[in-house]
Design a protein around this nucleic acid. Structure first.
Lengths: 264, 264
DNA sequence: TAGATTGTTAATCGATTAACAATC
DNA sequence: TAGATTGTTAATCGATTAACAATC
């Protein structure tokens, strides 16, 4: 507060790029950084468990699987929470990252679809410890409704709107079959939910202002397969290099030779 | 083949940037593109199911949830598989993307850890239809070993190396508790696996040449919470805008005022 | 003070996007 | 030919990284 209008920075020409960068920095934290904060938080919790009170960017970066420049850059978006020559105080950093991520408050979650995946999610210990409280399990299958899972009773999907409104659900986890996902999504959004975590293998359509994140087991495997194929063991791994060199600087319609390579 | 040395492109100065871009284009497909190919493939399969034979970049992009320029750019990395004025032939594009991702061959998968999550993965229909064959389910719990799940018998973790080698497993899916994940990972890598899909909430350390992808349920929720917090409903949502304006052009250590805002 | 480590700068890299020439 | 749509270009954007001044 008391530092508001003090000591303006040295006067200098400002490029459009710099203006945009500054606006972004002021407004929020880069998406890539947000996605890594939970990873840092987990590493910090692990350090806490081991009774470590202070950590350097180098050590924390290693624990989180990133390079230290990236870690420092990421943390600098939150503020100056380290001490030069010393490092970061673990407990303080845990608090700051938690607050930034919104984990100092509780989030009420409903899981829709109580198959194996829904059950796995309901029983996942990582939720409760991070401020996520599962307050509803819903399913369309009458054979599952009424079952007791992880201290909750499975309710019928007809109760969806009631559950969301009465219990203040703000995050919906969709673990239904693909065919039901969009309908369920429309209903939770209509009931006021603005954050959806989707495990169904479909692209959900939502109105402006609603956030959807997608976890797709099959897509991850397909990405692995792509890279696996390129390794020595893959059937095309050895041919790839010379094949591409022949094409260097060539025009479009390179595609034709791929087919030949496969048919041959 | 027969187009190798024909018609060199117009002579012109080439910047270092262009050289790098060309090298990358020749060598492979950008990671961001690879990650989207499975999404396009799914959308195309859906079109096939509906009997649609041809699709424009605009339509396919909408179905996949991306913009059409990005889609065309992505597909251009594979080759020229469209027809100007017409669009893409669905069946042909399915084939080309499948081949590029390595889905025209079968990949043998082992799932380690047969809790609810492992079971969900074992039963996931999206695998078999994409060329992934689950050939092993392993667990350390004697109470689960021997159980029949999705046509497979759960085997003891002691059999891990045998299963991997005898059945030609090339992708390991780790669905164990956090504490067991690194040990299991070390073992599958030692047995020859070079692609790992990790569901355990830990950062795995692997040697050069081994690919690890990570799916973390808790991290996805935390990212959602961050954005949810910034919306109108969140406690800071309304204050954020004016608060930031005061800081515009101010020096470092902006962080201090965040704390004040919370404490106040 | 000397050593250590942060926070920031600036260069580079990779990804996105609008626009449009090429061409069916 | 006229209309439609691809494939490519080039501008812009956002992310990564090494290097180092600031400073504990």
């Amino acid at each position: 507060m008391f530092r508001s209008a003090s000591s303006p920075p040295k006067k200098q020409a400002v490029t459009p790029r710099q203006i945009r960068t500054r606006e972004r920095a002021d407004r929020g934290i880069p998406e890539a950084t947000v996605a890594r904060l939970p990873v840092y938080l987990r590493a910090l919790h692990s350090l806490q468990d081991r009774g470590i009170a202070t950590v350097s960017s180098e050590e924390l970066a290693t624990a989180a699987g990133v390079n230290s420049a990236k870690l420092r850059k990421d943390l600098s978006h939150l503020g100056s929470y380290g001490t030069r020559g010393v490092g970061y105080e673990v407990e303080y950093l845990v608090y700051q990252i938690s607050r930034e991520l919104g984990l100092t408050q509780d989030w009420v979650v409903a899981i829709i679809g109580v198959g194996n995946l829904g059950r796995a999610l309901a029983g996942y210990g990582g939720f409760a410890s991070r401020g996520f409280r599962v307050a509803g399990l819903l399913d369309a299958d009458a054979g599952i409704v009424g079952a007791h899972i992880c201290g909750l009773t499975v309710e019928h999907i007809d109760e969806l709107e009631t559950v969301i409104k009465d219990r203040g659900v703000s995050i919906a986890v969709i673990a239904t079959p693909a065919g039901a996902a969009q309908v369920v999504c429309d209903r939770v959004v209509a009931a006021g939910v603005t954050s959806v975590l989707n495990f169904a293998p479909v692209v959900l359509t939502v109105p402006e202002g609603v956030d959807v994140r997608k976890v797709d087991l099959s897509i991850e495997l397909q990405i692995l397969a792509f890279h696996e194929q390129r390794k020595a063991g893959g059937p095309m791994g050895d041919q790839a290099e010379p094949e591409y060199e022949v094409l260097e600087g060539d025009g479009p319609s390179d595609g034709a030779q791929y087919i030949e390579a496969v048919d041959a």
